[in-house]
């Protein structure tokens, strides 16, 4: 009898993590949130990327966000809080929907992958430091987009 009870409670506990909570948008930005706004003197105006970062930083589940854009492409990568990663698929879907609603004029590539996050961080830092021209940025971003579409 007690064995059954233990099993039931274990199953209940495990399934409890499977409920789909929608991402919560807060008015205030997350505390201790590292937000790198790219300067305006880069060859391609990074205004949309900065706006997307600002927007995503309001979500409670988002820990870090990196974004770079070209003329009509916007590539975003987010890091989700560890305990929210149980619902990674659902969160990714919802966040992509929200971002696409806000930036309807651009082609959005949204990723929660660590690799994309790292590559975007490197690109952001290079943008800040060096004088990259438009072609170089396009090339780097194209490579990142290709990576994000890769499947096993």
């Amino acid at each position: 009898m007690s064995k059954k009870l233990v099993m039931l409670s274990i199953i209940a506990f495990v399934l409890f993590g499977c409920t789909n909570n929608d991402p919560t948008y807060e008015d205030a930005q997350n505390a201790d949130f590292e937000l790198l706004k790219i300067k305006s003197d880069v060859p391609v105006d990074q205004q949309p990327a900065n706006q997307a970062k600002e927007f995503l930083s309001h979500y409670e589940e988002v820990k870090q966000v990196r974004a770079v854009n070209t003329e009509d492409d916007l590539v975003i990568a987010v890091d989700i809080n560890h305990h929210d990663r149980f619902q990674l698929d659902h969160l990714q879907k919802e966040l992509t929907k929200d971002v696409k609603k806000n930036f309807s004029g651009m082609t959005i590539t949204f990723s929660t992958d660590r690799k994309i996050l790292i590559e975007l961080k490197r690109l952001e830092e290079d943008l800040q430091k060096q004088n990259m021209n438009v072609d170089e940025i396009n090339e780097r971003l194209e490579k990142i987009k290709k990576l994000s579409k890769e499947d096993t």
Binding site: K115, I118, S148, E150, T152
Partner: peptide
């Protein structure tokens, strides 16, 4: 992931 062109998936 850090040193080669692999994503979390691949």
């Amino acid at each position: 992931i850090y040193f080669f062109d692999f994503t979390e998936k691949t």
